[in-house]
Design a protein around this nucleic acid. Structure first.
Lengths: 267, 267
DNA sequence: CGAACCCTTGACAGAAATCAACTAAGGTGG
DNA sequence: CCACCTTAGTTGATTTCTGTCAAGGGTTCG
């Protein structure tokens, strides 16, 4: 594994407080792999042998049942996912696939579990990470149960148009179909909902969203700290589409092969 | 606090592995309170000063937004709730109210947080508890996103008719309105859904449910370990209606004042 | 160029919420 | 003990929301 990657991981909330020696033990047996787009990393129901760390690219967590499928979260770099399953030594509740070219670090769950015992700081960090994840899913669930589809979309757009000032503009971090699945609607419905929000100060041009009248939008979906964050406070593991840089990234870390890849690696 | 209560709490997964001395420290500053039915214990958005332990009765976790309200979980005795908020020293994401007469132990969050540092076993137990809670909410969310209302009800009835044998019968652990809210539908809808399931081997008589044809029900909602448990494996904190004794309890611990109370204290 | 995919749009069907009325049962108070 | 009130649950009529099916435009990619 490259030292530069290690340093990056070391900075994560989950690992930054643990003893250097222990970090070495943990990462010594780790794998470092790069995957192309749309590779399924994890199959729901399999046992969790590794904790995953997204270093570059991003990963979609999704679930399926009876032919239906839904997006549960998108994991941006640099962060971990499926911590809960790794700890419990339990079957995954969600599947995972890469969005765009993605580099993943794999840490054996066994090492993880023994590490709690030896490094109290790591145990503490794990607790924080899990608690944050838990709260994130609770927010997602509240969103689904208390808001209509249109309200969810409005809330999503508002929270992602940071500093809800007039004329705030941003690029959707994911394809609309994925956003639709995350919000719990079909792509067709999302399309119509977007359209219906045009009357409330939302301008849609492809992936580009411009909020021309935040106050009008706010009337549809009043934001609440208990539902709309702030939770992307650095520890954004778990559920919820992450915050992204609002302006298109000028200089991607690696050569643009396709526009699609460049777009998705925005995270 | 009564010794009998303390012993009960001590047995919980969260506390059983910690040092006796530390357990004393934790519970020394604890409050023991009994509340009547329908008392709001926690208001969404308030800061989490105490970890709560339900000793008798049960507690509903719910959330509201813009006049709407939804049930997120019902916490049975003996178990803890809102562990995540206590740890993070963060505002509650959910409100809580008693169902029936309920006895609660309150442990100061401050003690909790310092205890991680001193007792590794407690830290470990906290991790397990949180991971279990996290997985529980994920299941709930998948249920909401992947299943229709009718499928959710069918799945609920099937999982609660333990050993899905023909003629399995049980009493709903909560009022139908609460079940409806948990499943994400209105009481009216639940009523209709129940009726529509009569064609698939479900017999409804008040709170009494009898599954006359489990295989027919299973055709509507195929159960999945990744969505329907088993999660009530003793560490049932967090989200999800808990398993209950299937037969009506003959001898309640305290005198029956009203039928309503007796019914709700079934947990 | 053609195949595949994303997104959109239209027409329609189905699911679920809403509004309203009504029953039944419990609890209250005279 | 009975009249009254409150509440859970049901049922019906209706509207609203959302999914499904089908088709077409635009783009990417081999």
């Amino acid at each position: 594994m490259r030292d530069s990657e290690l340093a990056e991981i070391r900075k994560l909330p989950l690992f930054c407080s643990m003893a250097e020696e222990n970090f070495h033990v943990l990462t010594h047996a780790a794998y470092d792999q790069t995957f192309p787009a749309q590779v399924q990393l994890i199959e729901e129901g399999a046992v969790a042998d590794f904790l995953h760390v997204v270093v570059e690219g991003s990963v979609e967590l999704f679930a399926d049942w009876q032919g239906r499928e839904t997006t549960m979260a998108v994991v941006p770099p640099v962060s971990t996912f499926i911590l809960a399953a790794s700890i419990m030594d339990a079957p995954y509740l969600m599947s995972a696939r890469t969005l765009g070219r993605t580099r993943i670090i794999l840490l054996p769950s066994v090492n993880l579990r023994t590490m709690f015992q030896t490094d109290p700081n790591f145990a503490m960090a794990t607790i924080s990470e899990l608690a944050a994840s838990y709260r994130s899913v609770v927010r997602h669930t509240k969103n689904l149960k208390l808001r209509t589809a249109r309200e969810r979309l409005a809330a999503y757009l508002l929270t992602h148009a940071t500093s809800g000032r007039r004329g705030a503009s941003f690029t959707l971090p994911v394809e609309k179909r994925l956003l639709a699945s995350f919000l719990g609607v079909t792509p067709e419905s999302l399309s119509r909902l977007m359209k219906s929000l045009q009357d409330f100060g939302v301008n849609v041009d492809g992936q580009r969203i411009t909020i021309t009248d935040p106050s009008a939008l706010a009337k549809i979906a009043i934001l609440s700290p208990q539902m709309d964050g702030p939770d992307s406070n650095g520890v954004t593991t778990g559920i919820g589409l992450p915050d992204v840089n609002l302006e298109p990234k000028e200089s991607p870390k690696y050569p643009i092969k396709t526009i699609k890849e460049a777009k998705l690696s925005l995270f």
